[in-house]
Nucleic acid binder design. Structure first.
Lengths: 203, 203
DNA sequence: TCGTGTGAACTCTTTCACAGCG
DNA sequence: CGCTGTGAAAGAGTTCACACGA
């Protein structure tokens, strides 16, 4: 039986939480604490975890280290992955230096933009290139993830370029939905839509 | 009967899409075209729209202008809303000047940070303040939405401040889940979690 | 004919309830 | 006891199927 998207999302949030408490040397955690941390019910958390055939300890909860390891193993979250950012405007450059990605096992190894001027002006530890070198660099560096931070009108063409270059996943920050070949995993993060979803629930 | 969260999300995406094609002077659109644009099935789109008691025209689809107007009215998306950003690091300042918000009816009217130095350095059309003036400015300006762009360790205290200041909704870009009083709508946008959700589906 | 509107069928998720175990 | 693990029940959400109207 395959794992549902909701379950995957919750497990990823749990994984992130485990990562943060592992550093605080917390050894055991119960399903109800996990539930509170990620905003779900304890039943759902237990169900999610049991679906992955990971087991806890009666009366003590789950052992943080081994739970994290197991969840990571089952969902392939334990590998370091390389990513690149396309579009080096305000948002793109902010993401380029977002240290959290590094901490969490995602290494931004390249930035791309179509404007040569912009590329020359950027001061970052990360290498930046013109977008026509995208395929070359993706192949050469083994980049698995592409992050789109260009305006709406170029987003689809960037998505096409990334697909063609061979990335396995795309995180899209542009305000349009991009279409990609099946087989490439993608996720749209639309800021305006998020604000609308919030506003729609007012009062 | 209340409207489900999934439906709200899809309607918000539809609303955004309608907004973009309205500018292109497209008059009618079918459920299947909408479905494609937002990544859903045409059945779901029709169901969602009919739940809001909005009607289309047989054989022609929905009239773009009136559909947008109706969806906007039902979900309160037709009002301009004021927002503020707390945390003026790379991400915060990028969001401060994210023109899309303005186009889409969300006006960023203030930025906050705890560092005076940072505040003095920022050059933006938007007014920036020290975070201890948050409540004052939120009240004075009638700000309904707070956007959190601070690091994990200060995110919860910022959420508390925003709640206390009286915002109705919070969009959280920090990597931890924040807890807010029920009645305040909030949504967490966790970039790392998004990359993990994508990676978990690889191969 | 083509595309909407909607009850009904179906499928997927979540919640419940309780057995099991230290 | 307290907390996990899991089949079963309940609840949501999605898809289907077809009536309807231009």
């Amino acid at each position: 039986m395959s794992i549902s998207n909701n379950t995957i999302e919750r497990i990823c949030r749990i994984f992130g939480y485990l990562d943060s408490i592992e550093k605080e040397k917390i050894e055991f955690i119960s399903s109800s604490e996990l539930a509170k941390a990620i905003g779900a019910t304890e039943h759902t958390v237990r169900k999610d975890i049991s679906q992955l055939n990971v087991i806890g300890f009666t009366r003590k909860g789950y052992e943080v280290k081994s739970l994290k390891k197991e969840l990571g193993r089952k969902l392939n979250l334990d590998k370091h992955r390389k990513a690149c950012i396309v579009g080096l405007g305000r948002l793109g450059t902010a993401l380029l230096d977002y240290e959290k990605f590094q901490d969490d096992g995602f290494q931004i190894v390249a930035g791309f933009d179509c404007s040569i001027n912009k590329i020359e002006r950027i001061k970052s530890d990360i290498n930046v290139f013109q977008v026509n070198r995208l395929k070359e660099i993706v192949k050469q560096q083994g980049i698995e993830l592409g992050i789109i931070a260009v305006p709406a009108k170029s987003a689809q063409s960037v998505a096409d370029r990334l697909s063609e270059a061979g990335v396995k996943g795309i995180l899209n920050f542009s305000p349009i939905k991009v279409n990609v070949a099946s087989g490439i995993i993608h996720l749209d993060m639309n800021f305006t839509s998020a604000l609308r979803v919030i506003s729609a629930q007012f009062k």
